[in-house]
Structure formats: C-alpha cells, structure tokens
C-alpha cells in the first residue's frame, strides 16, 4: 500500500506541474496569481523527499509530505494542504488500511483544513470540493465497499463541487477582497483539490 500512496503523491506532483499555469491563471483572476507555482513547488519538494527517503508506513509518509508542503508551498495552501496530510497521516497511524480507515483519515485531514481555514460550505474555497467528495466516498464505501469505486465517486463529486464554486462570491482568503467581482470565476483551491482526488482515483485503488 505504501507504493500506491507513493504513486499517488508522485502522480499528483506530475498533474499539478502540468496544471500549474492553469491554476495560476485561475488564481490571477481572484487571488495573487501564485497557486499553480506554489503547489508545483510544494509537490516537487515532496517528490524530492520520496526520492531520498524510504518510509516504513503510510502514516509516516503522509506526515512527511504534510511537513514538506508546510515549508515549501508558501501561500495559504501550504498550511492547509500541509495540515490535511499531517492529520490524514496521524489518523492512519496504527490502523490497517481499509476503505473505511482511509475514509476516516480523509475526514480527519479535511477537519484539519476546516479548523485551520475556518471556511464554511459556499465560501468559495477548497472545502467546497472536499465536502461533497467525503460524502460521496462514504456513501460508496457503505454501498459497494470498494476503494476504487469510492475514490472515483469522490473525485466526481469533487469536480461537481469545484464547478459549483464558479457563481459563488468569495468569503475567505485574498479572493474575499474582491467581493462580488469574484463571482464567475472558478476557485483555484477547489480545482487543485479535485486534481488530487482524481489522481487518487487513478493510483490508490
């Protein structure tokens, strides 16, 4: 399972790198035009860690990824995604990896994001992509019990949540300074969250 999580982080890094310009473009409309570059820098640093270090457990791997993002991303997504991976890893410590335990870990990570960012649903943030994704994941696990199906459902729900940020008015972060002018733009954080979940659906199952 460690290999799959490693693949996930590497694949995410690749996808974020390919989408860096796109994310930055989204961020330039309503933020400070650095989200793509920041995520790319942070995940490239994660890959550099993976190249140098081998990990004995998934929770150690995720915690290290979280600390790396905290130090290297720079923008608000650093502490947010960093907290996500730190809490995800911490929640998995000592558990065997099942669709249920991974679901618990994801929820712990997202609770961390929520505590850190103090966002609510509809604030036009990454939480608007995370929240429906978690619900879809849990529903799929309760139904089929299959990790692959659950991750796929999560990614699809996340994409819907992402698209639904377009008409919203931002109430958090740099975009909130724009007020009404943020309406009509897709949230970059919800976009990168969806990229991470789509990558998970490809690699983790």
């Amino acid at each position: 399972m460690i290999d799959k999580f490693t693949d996930w982080l590497r694949d995410s890094a690749k996808v974020l790198h390919e989408n860096a310009a796109y994310l930055t473009e989204l961020d330039s409309a309503i933020g400070d035009a650095d989200h793509g570059a920041n995520m790319d820098r942070g995940f490239a640093a994660v890959v550099a860690v993976l190249d140098e270090t081998s990990f004995d457990s998934v929770d150690e791997l995720l915690k290290k990824a979280g600390m790396t993002l905290v130090s290297k991303v720079g923008g608000a997504s650093g502490p947010l995604y960093g907290t996500f991976f730190l809490r995800f890893g911490t929640a998995l410590a000592g558990l065997s990896l099942t669709p249920e335990s991974i679901g618990t870990g994801l929820r712990a990570g997202v609770d961390g994001v929520l505590a850190r960012g103090k966002a609510e649903l509809g604030d036009k943030t990454m939480y608007d992509a995370w929240a429906p994704a978690l619900d879809a994941y849990d529903a799929a696990v309760a139904g089929s019990g299959d990790l692959g199906a659950a991750l796929k459902a999560a990614a699809e729900a996340s994409a819907k949540g992402r698209d639904a940020t377009v008409p919203l008015e931002a109430r958090k972060g740099r975009a909130s300074y724009l007020g009404e002018r943020s309406v009509g733009h897709q949230d970059p954080g919800a976009t990168s969250t969806t990229l991470l979940l789509e990558s998970a659906a490809r690699t983790l199952a």
Binding site: S71, K72, G78, P79
Partner: peptide, 13 residues
Amino acid sequence: GLDEKTFGTDAVA
C-alpha cells in the same frame, strides 16, 4: 518569505 526573494510563509520557519 520562502527565501529572500520568494514571497510566502513557512510554518516550520
């Protein structure tokens, strides 16, 4: 800053 030239903050720092 992430370094003297790059904007950003680092919780570890």
